[in-house]
Amino acid sequence: MSGFNKVVNSYEEAMAGLEDGMTVIAGGFGLCGIPENLIAQIKKMGTKELTFVSNNCGVDDFGLGILLVDRQIKKMISSYVGENALFEKQLLAGELEVELTPQGTLAEKMRAGGAGIPAFYTATGYGTPVGDGKEVREFNGRKYIMEESITGDFAIVKGWKADTYGNVVYRDTAQNFNPMAATAGKITVVEVEEIVQPGELKPTEIHTPGIYVNRVIKGSFEKRIEQRTVRQG
């Protein structure tokens, strides 16, 4: 690597440095916009005791779900984890810890973490089990709970295109949590469908500026669809 060139050529290189017990922030919503090859690499590495911060935990045989098979995940911080039988089994057996977090709070925890803000107040979850034990403050007559932000040892992100400097654009709703995840990793790894030369992406269309990105790799993607719904054409 030299200068601002963030491109790596193997998935081994992309995930180098990941160790047992680390926290990994992952982009994606359901199976949409998930860094599927980076997840597969973590499975291959066999890294254990991982905490994942991700809206969902994939399905049994795709996405983060594949890391459950060898019990690589110790804890999930997620808003919704319902689509996965193995997840349910490990949860009920006490082999897996889950911290359910409202979706908007989860997004903001990542955003704030990446932006150097240690905590924020939100009305979301006040008066519910989510607010239990958290500091409550009143602003303008309304009650808010304090939520702490999140950073990760790694962030794994799925983009559409990146240039070699690590500037990233996302495609359609595959954007979701990816831009926030990208800001919140000590090491941020982005896998994309296409790598282009600096200058080919318009500066105004870049979603994630390269300053947040440490490694970029080009992958090929299955892009599995969770709920295939169609209308007659």
Binding site: F29, G30, Q103, A107, M110, T173, A174, K223, E226, Q227
Partner: peptide, 26 residues
């Protein structure tokens, strides 16, 4: 596959739609 709704169903974007991050959405 990159165009889904919050129910994870495949959808389309209407004329005049915008697409953004989860932080922006919330």
């Amino acid at each position: 596959a990159d165009m889904i709704n919050a129910g994870k169903q495949t959808v389309t974007a209407a004329t005049g739609a915008s697409i953004f991050s989860s932080a922006e959405s919330f």
